[in-house]
Design a protein around this nucleic acid. Structure first.
Length: 271
DNA sequence: CCGGACGCCTGTCGGC
DNA sequence: TGCCGACAGGCGTCCG
C-alpha cells in the first residue's frame, strides 16, 4: 500500500502529536503481523519518551530513550492519532497510549505490516541493513542508477522497485516515473544509458516530491494520521488507467505484468 | 550473485 | 442477489 510519500505524509502528520510525548502503555490486540509483534515490547517501551520520528525507505522509526520502535505499514496499514477512549474497530491491532488521553492506533487489515522493538541502532537491524539510498537524498542520481545497473538483466521497472537499489519506489511511483522519463518498463536495466538514467532519477525524485506535497496517494485504504485521504491519485498519468488515452499522445495506456506486478505504460511514448 | 516464483492476509470488484 | 476467482500499494524467502 503505502509507498514512500504515504509514509512521509504519515510521519509529518504524526510528528506534532508524538514528539516529546511519554508512552503510558502499549496495548497489543493482535500480535500476528508480517512478523510477530516483538514479545515483551509492552514492557520495553512503557514510560519512555518519544525523542524523534524518522523514515528510512518505507519504514517509520520511533526513536525512544533506550531503543527504537520499527514500523512498516505493509500493504494496508495506517496510523492515526485519536482519543484513547474511542473504541477500536476491526483490524485496529495496536494502541500506543500517550499522556493526555490520546493514542497512536495502528490498523492493518491484511496484516502485512511490522511493529518491532530494537534496542540497537536501527540502521544495523537486519531489515534495514541492506537498504539502498534514499531517492530524495544526495546519494541518489542518474550516475548511481547507471553504475548500479551494469551487468544486470532485469526489467528497469523491477530494478527501481528493488529496495537494495533505491528505497521507497513502489509500484505506483515506478509506473509514473518511467512514464514521465519516457522509458519502457520492460527494458533491460543494464542496457540503458547515462542520460536516460539521469532523466529517470530526476523523475523519480519529482514524482515523490509532488506526491508528498499532495499528501500521498489514496487508492483504497490509505488515510493520513487525521483520517483524511491523499490527493495524488488525481495526478496519476498511467497507473490504473489501462485503455485510457495517454496524456501526451492519446494512444491507449497498456497494462501488462512485469515481475509479477501490474504495469502501466504508453507504448508510443515509452521506449 | 541474480532473477523468478511464491506466500503471507483480508477486502473488493467484476463476471457469471 | 450470490458465489468465485482474480487482484490489490510490499517484501522476505526459496530455488534454480
Amino acid at each position: 500500500m503505502p509507498e514512500l510519500p504515504e509514509v512521509e505524509t504519515t510521519l509529518r502528520g504524526l510528528s506534532p502529536h508524538l514528539l516529546g510525548a511519554r508512552i503510558e502503555r502499549l496495548l497489543v490486540r493482535e500480535r500476528r503481523l508480517r512478523y510477530p509483534v516483538s514479545p515483551g515490547i509492552e514492557d520495553q517501551v512503557e514510560g519512555q519518551r518519544i525523542l524523534a520520528l524518522e523514515r528510512r525507505g518505507k519504514y517509520l522509526l520511533l526513536a525512544l530513550e533506550r531503543g527504537t520502535i520499527l514500523i512498516h505499514l505493509g500493504m494496508s496499514g495506517s496510523l492515526r492519532v485519536l482519543a484513547s477512549d474511542i473504541p477500536p474497530a476491526k483490524h485496529d491491532h495496536l494502541d500506543l497510549r500517550l499522556g493526555g488521553g490520546s493514542c497512536l492506533r495502528f490498523r492493518d487489515p491484511r496484516r502485512f505490516g511490522i511493529f518491532l522493538w530494537t534496542p540497537d541502532p536501527p540502521a544495523t537491524h537486519p531489515l534495514l541493513a541492506h537498504l539502498g539510498p534514499e531517492p530524495l537524498g544526495p546519494a541518489f542520481d542518474g550516475d548511481y542508477l547507471y553504475r548500479c545497473s551494469r551487468g544486470r538483466k532485469c526489467a528497469v521497472k523491477t530494478f527501481i522497485m528493488d529496495a537494495g537499489v533505491v528505497v521507497g519506489v513502489g509500484n505506483i511511483y515506478a509506473n509514473e516515473s518511467l512514464y514521465l522519463a519516457g522509458i519502457h518498463p520492460a527494458r533491460p536495466c543494464g542496457r540503458i544509458g547515462r542520460d536516460r538514467y539521469s532523466r529517470l532519477a530526476r523523475q523519480i525524485r519529482g514524482v515523490l516530491d509532488n506526491a508528498i506535497e499532495q499528501g500521498g496517494t489514496t487508492l483504497r485504504d490509505f488515510v493520513r494520521e487525521d483520517g483524511s485521504p491523499g490527493y495524488f491519485a488525481l495526478s496519476l498519468r498511467v497507473y490504473d488507467r489501462a485503455g485510457e488515452p495517454c496524456p501526451g499522445c492519446g494512444t491507449p495506456i497498456r497494462q501488462r505484468r512485469i515481475g509479477q506486478r501490474s504495469s502501466f505504460f504508453c507504448p508510443r511514448c515509452q521506449r
